[in-house]
Write a protein that binds this DNA or RNA. Structure first.
Ligand SMILES: [Mn+2]
Ligand SMILES: [Mn+2]
Ligand SMILES: [Zn+2]
Ligand SMILES: [Zn+2]
Lengths: 157, 157
DNA sequence: CTATTAGTGGAAATCATTTTCATTAACTTC
DNA sequence: GAAGTTAATGAAAATGATTTCCACTAATAG
């Protein structure tokens, strides 16, 4: 049930309405699942979480909605090398919980980290400015990912 | 023709031999194409460049070889959001030409940049160290990509 | 040179994502 | 609230990059 924790409509209604998008059951259900789940969900993961409560929402619409959400900047579409796209909310109601990723190239485990984020973000801000000017690019987003072997895969010989 | 610009065998022979991999025509041809091409080639791009000279090398082997090369760290496998993996040489004979990417979310154009790289790389080194220790991760690589609208797509209304 | 077996090509399979199209339901207007 | 407009949808089929299978080939060791 697309909850509003009884303090007015979910925080995303505004962003949606402004862009001429209709607010459908499916879209709400998907945002609801994303905002209540930890981790990096694939389209099918989301489908499986939405389906029990809203069996009428099809996988096709999950894909379509994720596409809209990522174009709206509400959701990040990520690639961790396991052959399917994964999604996470760009920011929660309390503002952004910005983080970057550590990806194991062996088992595909992903760790969110926020350590060092401040220095990184500060540098990124400058870099974005410089690059934006030099290449006339309107930068809206960045991805930083470190790849390597996680504790388990690294020690396992 | 897997060239050696007549100064001994191509620089990658050593890396290969050490790991128990056989040095085949196909593998040489692929490395040769990668080292002589600018840009970010897909498996099929590479196939098309290899095919005229070595019609016996199949697409399947291109995929297999790219996989080996990226596990060896000779090649980076990249995702720019256009539905196929793209590859670039990790470093040329003259050492690393390290760079990061600016990706247009509208037309998928990609710009390599090296500006600001020094500061970024310095910060990344520290971050890698900190993260490696805290999460017991053996970090071997990183990806930094900025997303936004390129000059053409940004101005086009 | 011969033996060993990693590597290969081609066809078929896989499977995440996209397309198609007839139907539904959000939002606007009265 | 009812009707009209049309964005959005579900189901099925199509797509297309990548992987799997397997009989065959050829790189390397001895
Ligand atoms: Mn994350
Ligand atoms: Mn590049
Ligand atoms: Zn791992
Ligand atoms: Zn563009």
């Amino acid at each position: 049930m697309p909850n509003t924790d009884r303090f007015g409509p979910p925080w995303w209604h505004g962003k949606f309405r402004g862009c001429g998008y209709r607010l459908t059951i499916g879209r709400e259900a998907i945002l609801d699942v994303l905002s209540k789940s930890e981790g990096h969900l694939s389209a099918e993961d989301i489908y499986m979480k939405v389906h029990p409560r809203y069996p009428s929402v099809g996988l096709t619409s999950i894909y379509r909605t994720l596409d809209v959400l990522s174009h709206l900047g509400l959701v990040y579409k990520l690639d961790f090398g396991d052959g399917r796209a994964r999604y996470e909310l760009a920011e929660g109601p309390k503002g952004s919980h910005h983080h970057h990723h550590l990806v194991c190239t062996d088992c595909n485990r992903v760790i969110d980290y926020t350590d060092f984020i401040d220095d990184e973000v500060e540098l990124l801000r400058q870099t974005e400015k410089g690059l934006g000017e030099k290449y006339k690019f309107k930068i809206t987003n960045h991805v930083i990912q470190f790849y390597g072997l996680c504790e388990r895969c690294g020690s396992r010989k």
